[in-house]
Simulated assay, not measured.
Amino acid sequence: MILDAQPDITVVAEVPDGVAAVAAAREHRPDVVLMDVRMPRMDGIEATRLVCEQTSSRVVMLTTFDHDEYVYDALRAGAGGFLLKDVRRDDLVHAVRVVAAGEALLAPSVTRRLITRMVAAEAAGAAGDAGTAGRDGPTSDGGRTPARRLDILTERERETLLLLARGMSNAQIAAELVISEHTVKTHVGNVLSKLHLRDRVHAVICAYETGLVIAEPGEAE
Rank of each mutant, 00 (worst) to 15 (best):
M1I: 10
I2D: 11
L3N: 06
A5H: 07
Q6G: 01
P7N: 06
P7M: 00
I9N: 01
V11P: 12
E14Q: 11
E14G: 11
D17A: 05
A20S: 15
A21P: 12
R26T: 01
H28K: 14
R38P: 05
M39F: 00
P40H: 02
M42T: 02
I45T: 01
R58E: 00
L62H: 01
F65C: 06
F65W: 11
H67C: 13
H67D: 13
E69L: 12
V71H: 03
K85G: 03
V87E: 03
D91T: 04
H94Y: 13
A101P: 12
L105H: 05
A107P: 08
P108H: 08
S109Q: 15
I115A: 09
V119N: 07
V119D: 07
A120P: 07
A123G: 10
A124W: 08
A133S: 14
G137H: 09
P138A: 07
D141A: 12
R144K: 14
A147S: 13
D151I: 02
R158H: 00
R158L: 05
L163D: 02
L163C: 01
R166D: 15
S169H: 07
I173M: 03
A174C: 07
A174N: 08
V178T: 14
I179Q: 08
I179P: 10
E181R: 13
V184L: 03
H187N: 10
H187W: 06
L192E: 11
L192V: 00
L195N: 07
R198T: 01
I205Q: 14
I205Y: 09
C206H: 15
C206L: 15
Y208H: 15
E209M: 08
E216N: 12
E219D: 12
E221A: 12
E221M: 10
E221T: 11
